[in-house]
Amino acid sequence: MRTPLLAAALLAFAAPAGAEPAPRVAAVQQADAALRAAIASDARPEADRARDQYRHPYESLTFWGLAPGMTVVEIQPGQAGWWSNILQPYLAQSEGTYVAANNGQQLSGVADGSADMVLVARAFHNWHRGGQTDALMGQFARVLKPGGVLAVEQHRAPEGSDPDQTAPTGYVSEAYVIAAAERAGLVLDGRSEINANARDDRDHPFGVWTLPPVRRSEQNGRSLTAEERAQFDAVGESDRMTLRFRKPA
């Protein structure tokens, strides 16, 4: 099934009946096929592909507006590189550029206004605890081109919750992220329920790390029973916000 974003693009550039596809339609179709191929590739670790049911990579990346030839900066991808295992081959085949900033301060080496997209996945709770959120958001705004996108995937706390209370459990609210982006001069451009999970009530003995993929079962003398472990596994991965911010042109 095509996403609404892709369907709209195809409709906008559709050729008259019986005519050859317009070049732009062909380009959209080619980009769509290239992204699907990168996601389905056997080069991705099996464990990565098993998580697609929870992280919806195709839908998320098309919502954020990924396109061939972009310069994409991923913040703290870590050693496993779940997103980078998709982004690197996809961008390489279209002469795009992938930049991994495993420490946010490495952005000092990224030129002002050079990135089409900055991707942040599951990091705001850690930044809040370290008092880093505003400084890092300012850096993201600096490296983005005018019109560039900040793409966010983040464990979601209930609206109105106190980040001092929720961040240690791995969650922050959408309002927290939106306010931080706005302070950096970025504008909310879209929000999606692609990665929502109504089964996640956020009431877990070891925070979000109780759930897959971490599946923590013991901490500070507390151990889950086999029945509890099965219950948390049945929740799946966390309820997550999926947000798109844009740097004003």
Rank of each mutant, 00 (worst) to 15 (best):
D32R: 02
Y90D: 02
T210F: 02
E46H: 02
G96D: 08
R216T: 09
Q154T: 01
G130D: 13
D233L: 15
L211I: 03
R2Y: 06
G65E: 00
G185P: 10
R244K: 14
Q76I: 12
D164P: 06
A19M: 12
G78H: 06
S41A: 11
F13D: 13
D233F: 09
A19P: 05
S223M: 01
M70E: 15
T169W: 07
Q93V: 13
S173Q: 02
Y171M: 01
G78K: 09
I178D: 02
E46S: 10
A121I: 04
A47Y: 07
V99C: 09
R156D: 01
A141F: 05
G81F: 03
E59K: 02
D189W: 08
V143H: 10
G96T: 09
A34Y: 01
M241L: 15
T242P: 01
R222L: 12
T225L: 11
N220T: 04
A43C: 00
H125A: 14
A15G: 12
F124E: 09
A43W: 02
A111N: 11
R199A: 15
V143C: 13
A19F: 12
Y54F: 14
L144A: 08
H125F: 14
V25E: 10
S84Y: 14
L211N: 00
Q88R: 11
E153G: 06
N220F: 13
W127F: 07
A33M: 08
W82Q: 13
G236W: 03
A37H: 08
M241E: 09
A43H: 11
E174M: 12
